[in-house]
Nucleic acid binder design. Structure first.
Lengths: 226, 226
DNA sequence: ACCTGAACACCGTTCAAGT
DNA sequence: ACCTGAACACCGTTCAAGT
């Protein structure tokens, strides 16, 4: 049979775009080489011409999604710049719910990931932070620099809410968790559970850390001699 | 053939203990139902009598490892107590390198996980923190409450160090990353890479956050009215 | 140069049977 | 009550062949 002329040729770009769309709609767990191939109307092995293996596919997906971020925009001062940049990254991660888990599992930073970090680090260095302080400060931000926290789960099928009986049992066994969670209006979600990492939580923690960073810097923090 | 009397009977405890030991020595990726069964000299399906599925196995492994932590020990004040507790958890995670990834992927908290969080939350509440502040403060700690950060990878096969040529290329493309990393004496490790999340880094960030928490509390922080 | 087909070495898990 | 064996529906990836 002659190749169907109506069928678009495969390309790395087409593979990655399809993979991102597939993950957006079906979740990361559904992304397999075989299913992606089926989605593209192609035999599994056809993908390997454009992507060396599954890890490379995930790298490419991360790069493609991160490209949506665009260049860093300077604000009034380092604090506002870093804050806005991180909140923008957070919005990206909320648009692509699978991205957090992909970033977490990259054994090496992709160039796009490095470029993102470079742009953040640049803000601190240009604002007079020492290289040592910049280094520690980036560690203090940790994954929050990417706009996510451990709470932001990518669970495709959230667990059903516990029954009233279970709730009573839980709050007897773990009274402090219950009291603390109750205040936030979601007794059904545990501290590091999913669902309560809303904008307010994220900004509270981010500002707390930015305050700490500002304090270290204005106090002229220096690395301990050893 | 009669059952070999010398062969110890399987039990949930024996399965979990073997799984923990197996993960300790071979890494998490090596833990499969089939390989664990082979390790126990048993057919794969024999495990399912003691553990309902693989997720339950991972839950059990987490519980067993976390049990090593023991009860919380009170120190001079909330700050010292929380600090010591978190550093103890960190040491546990360093002993069981697979545990971080298992904790991260639990869709629901196991009872042992909840008990750990409960003990931490109790410290804040007993020290006069409001429930609302306690809630936000636990979020600010995030995964650091478990003694890990995004930097603490469980990579069984660390990537080879880049060649000098690659290093030069990298530092030209990402000058700020290079400058910042250089100061810490490990140009070969990127910011969120593995290997530089040493004790000092962790304590720097932890203390920065504890400072922020102490500041919020002594300032009488209250949730915004809405 | 790009895609295909069959095969290999793995998974987790079900079902029906053995002791 | 506990373990077994064969089977099912999946994986990622190799190799040799087609066009």
């Amino acid at each position: 049979m002659p190749p169907d002329p109506a069928r678009e040729r495969l390309s790395r770009e087409r593979v990655l775009t399809a993979a991102v769309a597939f993950a957006d709609t079906h979740g990361l767990d559904a992304v397999s080489m075989r299913r992606l191939a089926a989605d593209l109307d192609v035999v599994p092995m056809a993908l390997y011409k454009h992507v060396s293996d599954k890890e490379a596919l995930l790298d490419g997906m991360a790069d493609l999604a991160l490209a949506e971020l665009g260049p860093l925009v300077d604000q009034d001062d380092w604090r506002a710049t870093v804050r806005a940049r991180i909140l923008a990254a957070r919005e990206l991660l909320l648009r692509h719910r699978w991205l957090r888990r992909v970033l977490e599992t990259r054994p090496r930073q992709t160039p796009t990931m490095l470029a993102y970090l470079d742009s953040l680090i640049a803000v601190f260095r240009r604002s007079g932070f020492s290289d040592a302080l910049t280094h520690h400060v980036m560690h203090a931000l940790g994954s929050r620099a990417w706009g996510f926290t451990q709470e932001l789960f990518d669970d495709p099928n959230p667990a059903p809410p516990p029954s009233p009986e279970q709730l009573i049992q839980l709050s007897q066994a773990f009274p402090h968790v219950a009291a603390m969670a109750g205040v936030a209006g979601h007794v059904d979600e545990s501290v590091v559970g999913r669902g309560c990492d809303d904008q307010f939580e994220f900004e509270f923690a981010l500002d707390l850390i930015l305050d700490g960073i500002a304090e270290r810097q204005s106090a002229g923090w220096e690395p301990p001699v050893r």
